[in-house]
Amino acid sequence: MWTFLVTEIMFFGGMFMAYIAYRHAYPLAFAAASQKLNIILGAINTTVLICSSMTMAMAVHSAALGKKNLLILFLIATLLLGGVFLGIKGVEYHDKWVHHEVPGPNFEFEGADAQHAALYFSLYFGLTGLHASHMIIGAVILIILIVKASKNQFSAHWYTPVEMFGLYWHFVDIVWIFLFPLLYLIDPRK
């Protein structure tokens, strides 16, 4: 599982590298564009994701102790928190759409360097989109785990799928831990 996660580090790493390179090239456009993001929603989503990591850690813990009901409860909590995260992300995407901040023919930006602000938003949608797609895949696996747990397929002796999925979920949390400061906190808020 860790070998897979290392390939995931490289998968996200390539996009992070693109972000670092372009931010280095156009720091002012990136700073101006980042002001358009809603820092409060970003912080709330960070908190939601940390909570879901906590419930996931507790789910693995319950599985290791063979507590089936607690395991199902914590898996459902993790799923719900993941849903809240994606919901808030959807609200943010909708705001970007309404305010013509999605790169493309309808992109509008009042700053000095609209072309490279569009580049920032392309990276924003690429990075958060890749992250959100990992969350959606995670939610599907969570549903499968909840079904399997309710069919008594896990015990204190064998709960490997729960443990492996826990690693995946925490990894997705770590990606967001870096995305939040890099996308939302670039420039001091005025």
């Binding site: 820092i39 912080a43 960070t46 908190t47 940390i50 909570c51 990591s53 906590m54 939040f180 400061p181 939302y184 906190l185 001091p188 808020r189």
Partner: peptide, 19 residues
């Protein structure tokens, strides 16, 4: 968990100060 939450509040608050 508590440390992670506190750190999130700290990093968000510092974003409002120009350093």
């Amino acid at each position: 968990f508590i440390t992670l939450l506190v750190m999130t509040v700290v990093t968000t608050s510092i974003a409002y100060i120009d350093l």
